[in-house]
Design a protein around this nucleic acid. Sequence first.
DNA 1: TTCCGTGCAAACAATTTGCAATAGA
DNA 2: TCTATTGCAAATTGTTTGCACGGAA
Lengths: 137, 137
Amino acid sequence: MEQLLELVRAHGGRVTTPRRAILSSLLELGSHVTAEELAEHVQERHPDIHLSTVYRTLDTLAKLEVIDHVHVGHGRAVFHMADETHHHVSCRRCGAVLEVPDSLFAELARQLEDDHAFALDHGHFALSGVCRRCRPG
Amino acid sequence: MEQLLELVRAHGGRVTTPRRAILSSLLELGSHVTAEELAEHVQERHPDIHLSTVYRTLDTLAKLEVIDHVHVGHGRAVFHMADETHHHVSCRRCGAVLEVPDSLFAELARQLEDDHAFALDHGHFALSGVCRRCRPG
DNA sequence: TTCCGTGCAAACAATTTGCAATAGA
DNA sequence: TCTATTGCAAATTGTTTGCACGGAA
């Protein structure tokens, strides 16, 4: 936590009450939070911290590569710590999200690299499919 | 074209001028059109066909599994004929889209199936990464 | 003191929806 | 006729932005 705040400061940013609160909630809630879920949690203690401030802080942290955001399903993005590199697959029916180790994508990444000089990201978008429970039959 | 319209009719739908026009433009423009691009093309001949009608028609065609939509990058979705099954990877910097044969995903799909009983879709979401031209260095 | 960061309200983009009028089957 | 479909405007959702004030460095 303090290290991360120090990183913000090192890049000319300021350590403010909202930033402390948001980062703290982010660490407490763990992975895969939406901005809105995060804002709600923050607002339990600091009711006046605005959703737009949450978005701006998430943006700042993303630029410092502290967090990543992943698009899973239609609209909302979820955020997680950048050090957890895994891919996501989500069920198109129920929305459940499965975390998949990077290693499963290694071969695919190698082929994209070899054939197209394309460097695959660590799961910036979730793949979609149908999970066990929603599978027909 | 006529077969597809017949399919609409077979499911209790009606074949209307807007639907003809939209389907025709869709076939003419080929893959990876956004709803807005499609609407613009349709409106060259039928200026009064509304964007929302395009969305509704795309929706209808998607339910009949005539087309698929793919989310590539931030906002907009692109549509393509359902019989073209390939995956997409898109460059996070420049937005370029690469079509990738399903076969590259076969091993991944098999492992998701074996390990999680998860049935991977044909590229409902594009993977993201950095393309050759945008690659640093 | 100097800007960065904040709250707020308003803007935004992409898509969806309610409704009354219209037109296929 | 009867109900699916349309145009239009307005609502929704998720996120971003302009602005004047307040607070870190």
